[in-house]
């Protein structure tokens, strides 16, 4: 048995360096050359300033923008670091709500959101993804229905016609991959950037 100690130490160290350092560092170098944009996080710049990542949702509250899904991410309370406070779309602390299906807190929150949205647009059914939090709290997408649902509000705030905005939403909707994988969706940041450009 004692003669197993040498391979235990030597092979462990060798494989550790190989898989724990050589491999990730080599992949970092390779990825940086082949896919430089993706490797850095698919960042979007505007006027030389990073405004976000194409893959990471950000919070929109103004009427003139399309809004993303509710986000359950939190951050440390600046006044008491042992507590946390709500901080939607906090991209350094991804998290879901983890509220269960029979939790009153969940149903109360959703009810309040549904009431608010119904007041905003009484003509269409409320899309479920617009009142439920995503798993990561950073979902960059909403369903095409959820984008179309917001068209009347955005049109009013921007003074643009609803038809034009509906067309914009359709132009930015992505279908399933090969008609099969995933779900139809609209990237909220990309849509809002197009909206700003459409003035």
């Amino acid at each position: 048995m004692l003669k197993e100690i040498r391979p235990a130490i030597v092979l462990l160290l060798a494989l550790t360096l190989l898989t724990g350092l050589a491999y990730p560092l080599a992949m970092t170098a390779l990825a940086g050359v082949i896919f430089p944009k993706q490797a850095q996080g698919s960042l979007i710049e505007k006027d030389g300033q990073v405004i976000g990542s194409a893959l990471i949702g950000q919070q929109f509250t103004e009427d003139k923008y399309f809004h993303g899904r509710p986000s359950a991410t939190t951050a440390a309370d600046p006044e008491d670091s042992s507590k946390t406070v709500s901080a939607p779309y906090n991209a350094v602390n991804s998290a879901g709500s983890n509220l269960g299906p029979t939790n009153k807190v969940l149903i109360d929150r959703v009810t309040a959101d549904v009431d608010r949205l119904k007041a905003e647009n009484p003509s269409a059914p409320v899309p479920v993804d617009l009142v439920t939090t995503s798993a990561s709290g950073l979902d960059p997408d909403i369903s095409p229905e959820a984008a179309l649902f917001q068209v009347p509000r955005v049109a009013k705030a921007r003074g643009l016609s609803e038809q034009r905005l509906q067309q914009l939403v359709r132009d930015h909707s992505q279908g399933r991959l090969a008609g099969l994988l995933g779900e139809p969706r609209v990237n909220v940041l990309a849509l809002n950037l197009a909206l700003d450009a459409a003035k």
Partner: peptide, 17 residues
């Protein structure tokens, strides 16, 4: 709870679009 609010499309709480 979600269905009672008229939300169709299944249980999307905690899921990604």
């Amino acid at each position: 709870g979600l269905n009672a609010l008229g939300l169709a499309g299944g249980n999307m709480e905690g899921k990604e679009v």
